[in-house]
Computed example of a mutant assay.
Amino acid sequence: MDLLEFWTKSKETIDDLVGKFMNDLKDWEVLEMSKYIMRDGKRFRGTLLFLLNNALGGDEKDAYPGALATEILHSASLALDDIVDYDDYRRGKKAAWAIYTNRRVIFVSNFLIPTALNIISQYGDRALNISIELWKDTAVGALKDMYGESKDYFKTIELKTASLFKLPTMLASFSSGKSNAVDLTMDLGKYLGIIYQLVDDYVDCVKLEREKLVGSAKQLFQITEGRVDSLVAVEFDRNKSEYLKILDSLPIEENYKDSLSSLPDFLAYGLLSEAGIKNKMF
Rank of each mutant, 00 (worst) to 15 (best):
Lys166Phe: 03
Asp87Pro: 00
Arg104Trp: 05
Gln197Met: 08
Arg43Leu: 09
Asn129Ala: 12
Ala55Gln: 01
Val232Ala: 02
Met1Gly: 14
Leu171Ile: 07
Ile194Thr: 01
Asp200Ala: 05
Ile195Gly: 01
Asn110Gln: 09
Leu73Val: 10
Glu253Gly: 13
Gly270Tyr: 06
Leu117Arg: 08
Ser163Pro: 01
Gly41Ser: 14
Leu208Ala: 09
Trp7His: 12
Phe107Thr: 07
Lys94Phe: 12
Tyr243Phe: 15
Ala268Lys: 00
Ala63His: 00
Pro114Ser: 07
Phe111Lys: 14
Ser173Lys: 05
Lys61Asn: 13
Thr169Leu: 11
Lys257Glu: 06
Gly270Pro: 05
Phe236Pro: 00
Leu128Ile: 06
Ala116Phe: 11
Thr8Cys: 10
Tyr191Arg: 00
Asp62Glu: 15
Lys144Tyr: 15
Lys280Ser: 12
Ser259Glu: 08
Glu29Ala: 10
Phe282Thr: 03
Leu112Met: 15
Asp85Tyr: 04
Tyr147Thr: 05
Gly58Ile: 01
Leu78Ala: 06
Met38Arg: 00
Glu12Ala: 14
Arg227Pro: 00
Lys166Asn: 04
Lys207Met: 15
Leu250Asn: 11
Lys26Asp: 14
Ala79Gln: 00
Ser109Pro: 05
Ser259Leu: 04
Glu235Gly: 03
Phe111His: 09
Gly57Tyr: 09
Leu49Met: 11
His74Phe: 02
Pro251Lys: 07
Leu184Ser: 12
Thr224Asn: 03
Asn102Thr: 02
Thr47Trp: 13
Ile119Lys: 04
Val234Lys: 15
Asn255Ile: 09
Asp201Leu: 00
Asp200Asn: 10
Asp24Pro: 01
Phe174Lys: 03
Lys212Met: 10
Lys166Thr: 01
Asn239Asp: 13
Asp204Trp: 01
Lys212Glu: 13
Ser163Leu: 05
Phe154Pro: 02
Glu60Pro: 07
Thr138Ser: 14
Glu29Trp: 05
Thr169Ser: 13
Met281Asp: 02
Tyr86Leu: 14
Gln222Thr: 12
Gln219Lys: 13
Arg104Cys: 04
Gly148Met: 06
Lys26Asn: 14
Glu133Asp: 15
Ser179Val: 11
Asn239Ala: 05
Met38Thr: 08
Tyr147Leu: 14
Leu143Ala: 15
Asp15Ile: 08
Thr224Gly: 00
Lys93His: 12
Ala96Thr: 06
Arg227Asp: 13
Arg43Tyr: 08
Met170Val: 10
Leu220Lys: 03
Tyr100Cys: 04
Lys160Phe: 08
Lys155Glu: 13
Ala268His: 03
Asp2Phe: 12
Gly19His: 13
Ala69Gln: 04
Ile157Asn: 00
Ile130Arg: 04
Val84Tyr: 05
Val30Met: 12
Ile157Trp: 02
Asp24Ile: 08
Leu244Thr: 01
Ala217Arg: 00
Asp27Gly: 06
Leu25Gln: 02
Asp204Glu: 10
Lys218Leu: 14
